[in-house]
Simulated scan of single mutants.
Amino acid sequence: MTEKQPQARVMIVDDQPMVLEKLRLVLGAHSDIVLHVASRAEEAVEAARSFRPTVILQDLIMPGIDGYELLARYREAEELAHVPVVILSAHDDAVAKERCFLLGANDYLVKLPETIELVARIRYHSGACISRTERDQAFHLLMVSQRELAAANVLLAKLNGIDELTGVGNRRSFDAAMAAEWSRAQRQSKPLSLVMCDIDLFKRYNDAFGHVAGDFCIKRIAAALTEQLRRPSDKLSRYGGEEFAIILPDTDQAGALLVAEGCRMRVEGLAQGESSSGLRSPVTMSFGVASLSPTRDSDMTAMVEAADAALFEAKRSGRNAVRHAMEMRAGQRLNA
């Protein structure tokens, strides 16, 4: 069994009634060919846009707009630029043929050719047009799919690394950033600082005003901390619950203490004459800072533990304070 021939949509553009009638009879006998006739060249481009032909058969010499101008107009229209155009001319003229092909014609026949030849050429050009359209559509869908996949991957990466409540980095993001900055500081012999910070007495705030107010408090604190970070490389993450972590690349102890103190004062100032803060009562934070120029013998986990220990000391000493951890060497905490 032979494969079914794709349907050819043929638009005929000719001002001669006898030629149009002949073509109707010849081509209308084939069930795989659908015809549309345009007897006026001025209407041909709009008719083609509407009919969406897979082949255009057209005369060359017509009143008003001639076949050459019409060819140029097809090729200027984006949706018709690649539709095959077969010229049916009464003259077998080499110069005319050359001009037609230069303007974008796909074929040139002296009218009227033998039926078997005309139908064969129509099917050939129509099949090429259909194949091109299907290929272009498939390519377009592939490009759209690739763009959507890329966008989805970017979004997924962001969602995997961003805390949903605050919009800052989450714990996964912190772990990745800390490992990356630790390795970079090791390679470049640069200082690295870590600030661990925690909202003071947050459970009391949450119990007093409810979880909605508690969530808003965490979001507002995250925004306040973000405002204090001046460099793109400084990274704020929600470490867990009401605890945050700030990674400060290329920052020594003095610089880290300045950042931490600025953050402490910013949070403390939220409730002082700042009705727009939206907080239900004054809130403070405690900060623990650890600084180190990592070497091969240094231990990143020990640095995190040291910053956490400094945070504990800030809490123990009365809260709303900044404390720096003991200096670290070879991954061990040393007495100050």
Rank of each mutant, 00 (worst) to 15 (best):
E148L: 15
L229C: 08
V86D: 03
S131F: 13
D163K: 09
V168T: 07
F174W: 14
I221L: 09
R121E: 07
V86P: 01
L102P: 00
L155Y: 11
S291G: 07
E305R: 14
M265P: 00
P191L: 05
L60A: 05
D234P: 01
G240Y: 03
S286F: 02
L142S: 14
Q16Y: 02
L236K: 07
S126L: 13
L292C: 14
H91Y: 11
R9A: 12
D32V: 09
K315D: 00
L35Y: 07
R231L: 14
V283C: 01
V110F: 05
E114W: 08
S317Q: 14
S281Q: 14
E79K: 09
A245D: 01
A38S: 12
V85R: 13
E134Y: 09
A208E: 12
T301G: 13
D59H: 03
C217Y: 02
F139R: 15
N320I: 00
M143S: 15
I199H: 00
F216R: 13
T295Q: 12
N320W: 00
A306F: 03
A245M: 01
E164N: 09
Q58G: 08
A290V: 08
R121N: 08
I12F: 03
A307S: 06
L201K: 05
F287K: 00
V95N: 04
E76R: 12
D93Y: 03
V144A: 15
R184H: 09
L229A: 08
R147V: 10
S183W: 03
L23N: 02
N206H: 11
V110W: 06
G161F: 09
